[in-house]
Amino acid sequence: MGKSHNAHTILAIRFSAFGDVAMTIPVMKQVLEAHPELTIVFVTNRNWEALCEGIPRLIFYPADLKGVHKGVPGLYRLFTALRKAHPGISAVADLHHVLRSRILRSFYRMAGIPVAVIDKGRASKKQLTSKDNKVLRPLTTTVQRYRNVFRLLGYAPSDRVPQREQHLTGRRKIGIAPFATYREKTYPLAKMEAVIRRLLEYPDVDISLFGGGKQETAQLTALAGKYPRLEVVAGRYSLAEELAIISGLDLMVSMDSANMHLASLSGVPVVSIWGATHPYAGFMGFGQPEENAVQIDLYCRPCSVFGNKPCFRGDHACMEQLAPERVTERAAAVLGLR
């Protein structure tokens, strides 16, 4: 699909999940950087506007899919509101390819607007996560899949990955995000506590704890009460404020979860911990080197793409057998701690 001369505004759709939405941001920045004549209107969850702040020509548009935009009538309301607010949209990039995004894009298609859709590579992901006859190989990354959608519309992104200069002098600020949506990709809290204890043996290290929700905040608050130089960020700041705090870190230690992607937005190095999931599925943080992914090799890994399937072995070996020393050694290496 070629780019027409009057194509200046693209609608990009990605409703959820938070980490996947965060992964779209650096790609859209690359597209806008390569095409200064272009504007992108990004429709996503109404609570995530902070992800788009400070990016020229990236316009946030809130979707309330549990409220006014619920169901087919709600999605039509969203379409008509978008058409009124941004009548110049001349192409649609569906970065989600789920029922709701298909319905929204179909309204545009019926109006004669060209549409490009992400290829999720479901067949190859099924082979990667299969219990039998597993094909363990790196797949096309999610970031590259997003890039391909814009390329189909005639807007190839730039290849530039912003590099943040690290001046590792004085105190080191480490963020630790010990939780994930599913148990199968969450490092046991007792083991993460061992990581924290070891990192705090370095006198020039300060640690901020990230998470979400009342239960996680309560667990982190209890943990912070046991050690010095621990600060709880979870539950105390807006998303915009959390992003600002993350941007000031020297390192984030995270699961395969949203905080890995939020840190990647600011070019913060991430030591990521992988259990049931695997970097080969394509969800590594933007610009993060694979050597910073801490994991163990097991015949059963990965058993799912998103970590949402119960451990069929029943012992969660991928996390239980992962020694805390592996995490602390990698973190110390990235920070140059001796």
Rank of each mutant, 00 (worst) to 15 (best):
Q321V: 03
A240R: 14
A156K: 10
R236V: 06
Q219L: 15
L239C: 13
I55L: 14
A22R: 04
V327A: 02
V149P: 01
L230R: 00
P188C: 09
S264W: 02
Q215H: 14
Q295K: 11
E193R: 13
F15W: 10
A63P: 01
L38C: 13
R46H: 05
H69Y: 12
K29W: 00
S4L: 05
E33N: 03
C300A: 08
P279R: 01
M252Y: 07
V232F: 08
G175E: 05
E53K: 15
P188Y: 07
V205T: 07
P87C: 12
L128A: 13
T169E: 06
I89R: 02
Q215A: 15
E329Y: 05
L168Y: 14
E193H: 08
A281K: 04
L51S: 02
A194K: 12
R198H: 12
V135N: 04
L189D: 06
A323L: 07
F150I: 05
V268K: 00
P73K: 11
D159L: 00
G285E: 02
P26Q: 05
T169D: 03
I10P: 03
R326V: 03
D297L: 09
Y108M: 08
Y187C: 08
C311F: 10
E290C: 05
H5A: 14
K66E: 14
M192A: 06
K70A: 14
I55R: 14
V98M: 12
I245H: 09
I89F: 10
V115G: 04
L82G: 08
D250H: 13
A234K: 15
Q163M: 14
K226M: 11
D204Y: 06
L104G: 02
E242Q: 13
L189N: 00
S208V: 12
Q30N: 14
P62M: 11
K70W: 10
G211M: 13
Q288C: 08
A50V: 13
R83F: 10
R160K: 15
M23T: 05
T9G: 03
W274G: 04
I113S: 05
G235T: 09
L58P: 00
A331H: 02
I174F: 12
A240N: 14
P279E: 03
I176K: 04
E184H: 09
L337K: 06
L243V: 00
L239P: 08
R46T: 03
G275P: 06
L209D: 01
G285V: 00
M1H: 05
K173H: 15
R14F: 01
I113V: 15
L230G: 08
A317I: 09
A332K: 05
H278F: 04
G212T: 12
K131Q: 12
E33H: 13
E231M: 11
Y299V: 10
R122C: 03
P324H: 06
L128Y: 08
G175M: 09
V117F: 09
Q295M: 15
M28R: 00
A91D: 02
T44D: 02
T129P: 08
V195F: 03
E33R: 07
I118L: 12
I245Q: 02
Q166N: 07
A240D: 14
D159H: 10
V31D: 09
V135H: 09
T129C: 15
T169L: 06
E165A: 07
V334W: 08
P310A: 01
N148W: 00
L322M: 13
R46M: 02
Y202G: 01
V232K: 09
I196A: 01
I10Q: 02
E201F: 11
A180S: 15
